[in-house]
Design a protein around this nucleic acid. Structure first.
Length: 289
DNA sequence: CCATATGTTAAAAG
DNA sequence: ACTTTTAACATATG
């Protein structure tokens, strides 16, 4: 599920429904999802604390936590809980199939993770097998925050390193975008998928933005003109805004046409498929140059 | 068995 | 040394 837009939805759910609730139990027994932490390590670090704020950069999400014995930051000032004795940051990466589910105080198990439809129409809301819950925070009020991750490529860890990520794809400024994206010999799509260049663009968003910009995914990134780079950034911001509004990156205009027999929704040409940047890529060979 | 899947990353290659 | 590409990761599904 998770590209920037889906992670932002998950972050908003955490911000809206999981902050300020005291953590009384933590299930961190999945040593793969919680690598490199040993079982119990995350639990020991979080018991008695509460989540203070939910942050995101690209596809990375993390929560600051309070000190034990007080409620810490009020979570309303937009700043981290930088209290002297604040707890560790709890990093959650949704990987390829992760999503956050927050249950209310009554333990009703409400699925507030946002919507998601995979290539096969898979909807986690329709099938939630308990064995696909990889990590759980249980709150004093009886509710819980869970990481549901079918494919198990997600990750939970304390104090995640986010320094290697580039600026968020929705916030990078024009000059920064020009110099970061418009360099090198790698295919443009590979550059866009590189989280150190700009953070948050995934396979679907890349295809959508390249199609909107009428740029070939195979163009060497360093050969783009300044005008093309500026247009690319405009379409990127537009696509993110649209996807946030419509509920997911899969709502992009060209996404439904990525597939065998797909045609460009603008000109009708047959879509081309190839592996670019290590990922399956679809584009309109007639318009994208 | 093979190929596919909205991600990351270590290792290899250039 | 830096950039780019590939393979592997764990798991489910067609």
């Amino acid at each position: 599920m998770p590209e920037l837009v889906e992670v932002e939805s998950a972050r908003a759910v955490v911000e809206r429904s999981a902050l300020g609730r005291t953590i009384v139990d933590v299930d961190d027994a999945d040593t793969w999802e919680c690598r490199p932490h040993a079982p119990g390590e995350i639990r020991d670090a979080l018991l008695g604390r509460e989540l203070v704020a939910a942050h995101r950069r690209g596809k990375a999400m993390w929560c600051t936590t309070s000190s034990r014995d007080d409620d810490g930051d009020d979570g309303q000032d937009g700043q981290d809980g930088q209290d002297g004795d604040a707890g560790p940051r709890l990093g959650i990466h949704l990987g390829m199939s992760g999503r956050i589910v927050v249950a209310g105080a009554d333990g009703d198990g409400d699925d507030e993770g946002g919507d998601y439809a995979g290539p096969g129409g898979w909807r986690p809301g329709g099938e939630v097998k308990p064995e696909w819950y990889r990590f759980t925070l249980t709150f004093a009020d009886g509710g819980a925050l869970r990481l549901f991750d079918k494919r198990r490529l997600g990750r939970v860890r304390l104090d995640p390193d986010i320094d290697r990520l580039g600026p968020d794809a929705g916030e990078v400024d024009r000059d920064d975008f020009r110099t970061r994206v418009g360099r090198g010999t790698a295919p443009l799509k590979a550059r866009l998928l590189d989280q150190a260049t700009v953070a948050g663009i995934g396979n679907l968003l890349a295809d959508e933005v390249l199609w909107q910009s009428r740029l070939s995914p195979q163009r060497p990134a360093g050969e783009l003109s300044v005008d093309e780079l500026d247009e690319l950034r405009r379409e990127l911001r537009k696509a993110i805004r649209s996807a946030l509004r419509k509920g997911g990156v899969h709502t992009g205009e060209v996404i439904a046409h990525r597939g065998a027999g797909g045609h460009c929704p603008r000109c009708g040409a047959a879509m081309t498929r190839a592996t670019v940047g290590g990922r399956t890529t679809w584009w309109c060979p007639a318009e994208q140059r």
